[in-house]
């Protein structure tokens, strides 16, 4: 059974309210869409074009380091934002914490923000369109196994799936399982196996080419 790691309480729920400017952008987008002056899909495609400016490559470096350095991995499971700021210089907005959750042979982790689209963008860049969509946000909690299967990720029945619900204060980075056959790989090379989707938990790390 999937278990929802619910970190919200009333106080946190309130802080989900986006900033005034964020809401003003949403307002413009809604009104302009209603008037037929913008097409949401074209807009998303434009955002996607520029999203690699923040880029998920930061996160891939963090995961690769965790694969080769056990101490680093333990530290980022406690307080990822603090450690990556010190080690890599990746800075988040003030007050936002990231913790890393590790996939193991028994547990698969996947991240959602059921209320809006909180996302660890300091390490993963801008959220993909599907992450913000209402169906993903609702269904990943109710039927994670089916949703993951739609991403081509088949999780065996005996493996537990944990769904982590982000808040504006606490966000999650999934450390996928390190693929076999990569023992002598460098961190840089390992990072190339880590996709954005693997760090959200809807995919696994890529297998090394034969």
């Amino acid at each position: 059974m999937a278990e929802l790691e619910n970190m919200h309480d009333n106080e946190i729920k309130k802080s989900h309210l986006p900033s005034d400017l964020d809401l003003r952008v949403k307002t413009l987008e809604t009104l302009l869409t209603e008037k037929g002056l913008i097409d949401p899909e074209t807009l998303d495609a434009l955002v996607d074009t520029y999203e690699n400016k923040i880029g998920p490559r930061n996160g891939a470096k963090v995961v690769a380091r965790a694969w080769v350095d056990e101490t680093f991995k333990l530290l980022i499971k406690e307080n990822c934002s603090k450690v990556i700021k010190e080690e890599f210089g990746f800075k988040g907005r003030q007050g936002e914490h990231i913790i890393a959750v590790e996939n193991t042979p028994k547990i698969h982790n996947v991240v959602v923000c059921t209320l809006c689209s909180c996302y660890p963008w300091t390490v993963l860049g801008l959220p993909p369109t599907w992450y913000k969509s209402a169906p993903y946000r609702a269904r990943i909690v109710q039927e994670p196994r089916s949703v993951l299967a739609e991403f081509g990720t088949i999780i065996p029945k005996e493996k537990e799936i944990r769904v982590w619900d982000s808040t504006s204060e606490l966000r999650y980075l999934v450390i996928p399982q390190r693929p076999l056959g990569t023992d002598d790989w460098t961190e840089d090379k390992l990072a190339s196996l880590v996709s954005r989707n693997a760090m959200i938990g809807v995919s696994l790390a890529e297998e090394p080419p034969l």
Binding site: E29, L32, Y50
Partner: peptide
Amino acid sequence: NGPVFDEPWHAQAFALAVHL
């Protein structure tokens, strides 16, 4: 390589103007 953003709404606001 071009414009950089610090938060998602920056990129959304940017894309709105480009689209319009």
